[in-house]
């Protein structure tokens, strides 16, 4: 098992970097955490966390301004790489947000907006958007990042868009809100989630602990 744990949280001026850092620190007190957008730090880190909240167009704009697009695409090739929320959505090719925005294109597929006309349980009203609160996460496949997290554990979400990866085997978890949708993708050394582990109490801290120990292989036997 890999015990290296020098992680860089990508700082591109958006998102709750400090919340993520505090949760990672709490989950793995011995880890070394950088919050940075500098090439040398990203290149030297053992693993990458790519967080994000806010709008997709602003996210891509900031990444361009900071010259981070190529760096992220390279980093996503080999090191354990974790995308969170907008950091998941930005990995895909295209998002409907902001009248259409190109993503990093690391994961084939698109990002769609929840319909405002999804009937609620009482059938007299519509589901509220954003999808906000604690929803159950169904683990679609075994993965090292699900270690010690029970099936259907609740995680905290806040988002109005959701990802639709093109390749079925990349679906790592799903939830239900109006319809079943993808809340986690996995591809080799990449794992990315729609929910916020840093706001998901015990399950979230366990998830970060799992990520910090992960060697980047997507099979359980490799650990």
């Amino acid at each position: 098992m890999s015990t290296l744990s020098e992680v860089v949280i990508i700082d591109y001026g958006m998102g709750n970097l400090h919340s993520v850092a505090k949760a990672v620190e709490h989950a793995t007190p011995k880890s070394k955490i950088h919050i940075s957008n500098q090439l040398s730090i990203i290149q030297n880190a053992d693993r990458i966390i790519f967080p994000g909240v806010g709008a997709m167009a602003a996210c891509m704009h900031e990444l361009q301004q900071l010259d981070l697009i190529h760096i992220l695409q390279e980093a996503a090739k080999n090191k354990p790489f974790l995308g969170i929320c907008l950091g998941l959505q930005a990995l895909l090719e295209h998002s409907e947000e902001n009248d259409g925005t190109q993503g990093l294109g690391i994961i084939p597929g698109n990002v769609k907006q929840f319909s405002k006309k999804m009937p609620a349980m009482d059938h007299t009203s519509y589901l509220k958007i954003p999808h906000m609160g604690w929803n159950q996460v169904y683990q679609e496949c075994p993965h090292p990042l699900w270690t010690n997290i029970s099936q259907h554990s609740r995680f905290y979400f806040v988002h109005s868009y959701y990802v639709t990866p093109q390749i079925p085997s990349m679906l790592a978890a799903s939830s239900h809100y109006g319809h079943r949708f993808c809340v986690a993708i996995q591809h080799d050394n990449i794992f990315a989630v729609q929910f916020h582990p840093e706001k998901s109490q015990h399950a979230g801290l366990q998830f970060y602990a799992n990520f910090m120990q992960w060697d980047g292989n997507n099979t359980l036997s490799s650990q």
Partner: peptide, 8 residues
């Protein structure tokens, strides 16, 4: 089952 009602 799905989104939970929140207590704050």
């Amino acid at each position: 089952m799905g989104l939970a009602k929140r207590i704050i």
